[in-house]
Design a protein around this nucleic acid. Structure first.
Lengths: 215, 215
DNA sequence: ATTCGGTTTAACCAAATGGTTAATATTTGT
DNA sequence: ACAAATATTAACCATTTGGTTAAACCGAAT
């Protein structure tokens, strides 16, 4: 009986917490930090974006540093579990490569700036990655490595260092978005045309990788 | 006779300009901007790095914005002409891919932070690319595109959109450096081990690409 | 009605930051 | 040798910025 009342309270707490100030701040901060980076973002701008007083930022997150940390971990946690799931799935290698590509591109369509943000800030402060590796959902590629090695034994694919293959898959999927402004210059395309190129990749990238390794 | 003296003077001017304050500032600014980005860099830190008074920065470059622009164009001009030369060289496609990879990796070994810097700042301010496209040495991929199309006609390689191939080449070469902190986390390698992986790529990346397109 | 905990705000503060100025030092042309 | 131009510096300035504080607000339990 009292448990029921407690649950009600807990739920109510969760609900209000989710919709109100604290997460409102986090979302506003996310938008601003992603757009301007840690050093370019201003606390006042975040407060304005959230429609509240600047002091609230410190009330809930104490400092810019900590607020940024919360944003960064939140952004990373949107990305990591999905990657992890695909990488460790129990499906054939070629299918896995197709799934990864398709899944990643869908993600980027929904959250266009997250990968760039993560990589950019990781470059600014490489030690940050230590915090992440310790996290629960940090991607682990051991299963993938074993799978690749087995495929090599089977002569399904040519010999290749599994880490290199993994890097190649990530590179071919992620770089076109991170390097978009530069690549638009090189290819002489505008936003729309470049978007079409990205759409085309959705089917072609996986095939490119498979061609490269298929024996 | 007077021409000789004039030449002497011109050379002297050039030399002093090259070695002294103005370029000293540019080099210091380059180091600081590349390390901290436009928004993270401080004018005082640049002055300290150059070993001069902060007012000199404004004396020679007027504002932080303009100093940054000078640094950015300088950095980009180290990268672009080389790419351009390799891309437009009159050599067979497969050889060209090998040359590009080898040439790019040598460059990165010498100037590790330039590509990351360029792409990062281009993301911060995508309009910047307009300035660059107009520049003399901005890479043009028309020759490359025609070459790829001819190879497809010859049945030397499978059908592929030349732009996509170009993007893939860039991705496989550039991303491993931009994404280094993240990839070190994923692969569980330290700096030295990761460097070894990069060394291995120097020979393997080109082969990976060629395998992917060779018929 | 009052008290009490958490929430929110306006006003404020010290340090940092990009930029300027006026005076000094150095180089250069005559 | 000297005057004009150029280079360099110390001190200064206005604004911005992250952060604090004390007071007001508000919903709920007593």
């Amino acid at each position: 009986m009292s448990t029921r009342w407690l649950n009600y309270l807990v739920n109510k707490m969760k609900k209000t917490k989710d919709t109100s100030t604290e997460t409102g701040i986090l979302n506003a901060a996310k938008r601003v930090f992603i757009k301007k980076g840690m050093t370019g973002a201003r606390m006042q701008e975040i407060a304005d974006e959230a429609g509240i007083n600047k002091a609230m930022l410190h009330y809930y997150y104490r400092s810019k540093e900590l607020l940024f940390e919360a944003v960064f971990k939140n952004a990373f946690s949107m990305l990591a579990p999905k990657l992890n799931k695909v990488i460790n799935a129990d499906v054939p290698l070629f299918k896995k490569i197709e799934d990864f590509t398709s899944s990643y591109i869908s993600f980027v369509v929904k959250h266009p700036y997250i990968p760039t943000f993560v990589i950019q800030e990781l470059n600014r402060n490489p030690d940050f990655v230590k915090n992440l590796v310790a996290e629960e959902h940090f991607p682990n590629i051991e299963v993938f490595k074993k799978q690749v090695e087995k495929c090599i034994e089977n002569k399904t694919i040519r010999p290749i260092n599994p880490e290199q293959l993994f890097i190649n898959i990530l590179a071919l999927n992620i770089f076109p978005f991170i390097g978009a402004p530069l690549l638009m210059g090189f290819t002489g395309t505008n936003k729309k045309q470049y978007k079409d190129l990205m759409k085309q990749r959705k089917t072609e990238v996986a095939q490119f990788i498979i061609n490269a390794i298929k024996v």
